[in-house]
Design a protein around this nucleic acid. Structure first.
Lengths: 317, 317
DNA sequence: AGAGATCTCTGACTAAGGTCAGGTATAGTC
DNA sequence: GACTATACCTGACCTTAGTCAGAGATCTCT
């Protein structure tokens, strides 16, 4: 298969190239694992627990890495206020400076790569990188239905409620969530999105009227935003709705949730007058489903082609 | 600069992705360094010297790696016939089988990546990968003029002569090369192409008549073919010719050099009747230069957009 | 209040990857 | 034939990255 040959060539080329670029993580005199850890702690700090999961590190190893960064005075680790077992790592001033330096180097490396290109080549490369990244990234998202009583489902919905409680000026109560009964036995469904084995989002559909479904509780984990999880969930929710007799789907959303609003608009949802009295809603959307799934997909590809400046075809022809 | 941001996102995404793919170099129970070494030795074998340079390894470390592969009976190392100091590593039968297995895994990984994509996405990704790889690869080639008496220039020309001696049925003598005097003092020039600091090709221009220049000894090192070195050299040679009063360039070539003939055709050279009695020549080409450099670039870019194959030009412009 | 789970840490250990300083054999040069 | 450079090797040593088995503190549930 010649396509696979291009992928292999690309992998070879790019891993060499990254090897050159990222030597000792951008020429720093710091082991890669430490640099990654600094990066992952970030400006906001993170609990050791979170770091362990996000970097998939052995707990002993992580502990030692943290001690190393502590002894360099880049990081300070303190007991969490809310749970005495948990410890939270934060960057010190020097640590933040180090992270900024890391960022500058990464920025400089990217700029240097672009600087070696004339304007048209640069555009082509940037556009092509976007295509590769977005397309592969979206393909990594896996959406499956899940019982609303499972651990994962409840964790997800709780995280959703928790985020809304912070983002909505009026707050949000977990009791406003859909009860599990509404999401089983054909009355509705809860879908879970996974990426590389981790749960990164969820969404529900319930029946509003005979031919109208409502999408609710669509949520994407913060660390997985911008990689197509929302779009993946949305299209699977629509597929479920369609295959369960839904001719159209509706949903409402809060004015604070700008990314969500953008997602709905980009995926064919049209704003409609309020169809309910949800105190948390400021926008109401609707999308007609019948025989639209293929059409929507075509349109998306068309748009991608037009915006992309180029590729399509290429090596394969 | 938003372009740099895309590059950084891409680098981050792709290095993660490669990390997942290449874990333990495709899930083999073999250290990465050993796998790379097997790969680099290849079916043809290679001298320890060459391996050291190509992989940039410490001589002691490489020696130990070779011992390890030897003790696994994957590689045998023997004294070179031509130089008693040099030792040549070759794959044994088991080594070749191991390499084939490695190849199969790489192939399977690439196929698996593509299998997660629907056909239109797959096409888009493959094409975009081609654009990124070719464009960046071409930009890495750096062409500079070099005194014909320098070590590098002579090494290059000797390698060129050596290759021709093998490829031409009638053989080729080093004495047929241009004398150094013809390549200095404005009478001509020798350009050297470098890639990541290594010399990967050369080419010369000399004056034939008042307004006619001749390109000679265009050569690209075997390990750097197909990455735009020839094109880069050619366009710089043309630039030199134009800026030294040349209105057109000519060149001849041997029928065995199919890649070269293709390169000339692809870059605006037209076949003309024999203009000399070079016993090694079977094809003669010519290209008019006046005010054409920009024009040629425009045209090429147009073609690239239509065919979406190649970005052209790169580092030199 | 007690049992069991969770979180983090320390100690002991391993493999991989790599550097550096000689040492020996061979090739080329005067 | 002596001298110098090249090619390769061995031994000693180091860092990074990682695993595994507990130990101790803290939380949660009953």
């Amino acid at each position: 298969m010649p396509d696979a040959a291009e992928v292999r060539k690309f992998n070879r080329y790019y891993s060499e190239r990254l090897g050159l670029l990222a030597d000792r993580y951008l020429g720093q005199a710091r082991p890669l694992a430490q640099a990654r850890l600094l990066f992952e702690i970030g400006a906001a700090g993170a609990s050791v627990r979170t770091l362990r999961h996000r970097l998939s590190l052995d707990s002993g190893y992580l502990s030692r890495l943290l001690r190393a960064l502590e002894s360099q005075r880049l990081v300070s680790v303190q007991r969490s206020d809310t749970d005495g077992r948990v410890r939270v790592a934060r960057l010190t001033g020097a640590g933040r400076e180090e992270l900024a330096e890391l960022d500058r180097r990464s920025q400089a490396a990217a700029a240097a790569l672009l600087a070696s290109l004339a304007a048209p080549q640069r555009q082509a490369v940037v556009a092509a990188m976007g295509v590769v990244r977005r397309t592969l990234s979206e393909a990594e998202v896996e959406v499956k239905s899940q019982g609303p009583d499972t651990e994962e489902a409840r964790t997800c919905l709780r995280a959703y409620a928790h985020e809304l409680a912070i983002r909505f000026p009026e707050g949000y109560e977990e009791s406003s969530l859909l009860p599990p009964e509404a999401l089983s036995g054909g009355r509705g469904v809860l879908l879970i999105a996974r990426r590389r084995g981790r749960v990164v989002g969820c969404g529900c559909v319930t029946q509003l009227t005979a031919r109208t479904m409502e999408i609710r509780h669509l949520w994407v984990a913060p660390e997985a935003r911008g990689v197509g999880v929302g779009r993946g969930l949305l299209s699977e929710l629509e597929r479920w709705a369609l295959s369960h007799g839904g001719g159209r789907v509706r949903l409402d959303t809060h004015r604070e949730l700008k990314e969500a609003i953008q997602l709905y608009r980009a995926n064919g949802y049209l704003e409609v007058p309020a169809y309910n009295r949800n105190p948390h809603a400021h926008h109401w959307f609707e999308k007609r489903l019948v025989e639209r799934l293929e059409g929507a997909r075509q349109r998306r590809l068309g748009a991608a082609k037009a915006k992309m400046v180029e590729p399509a075809e290429g090596a394969t022809s």
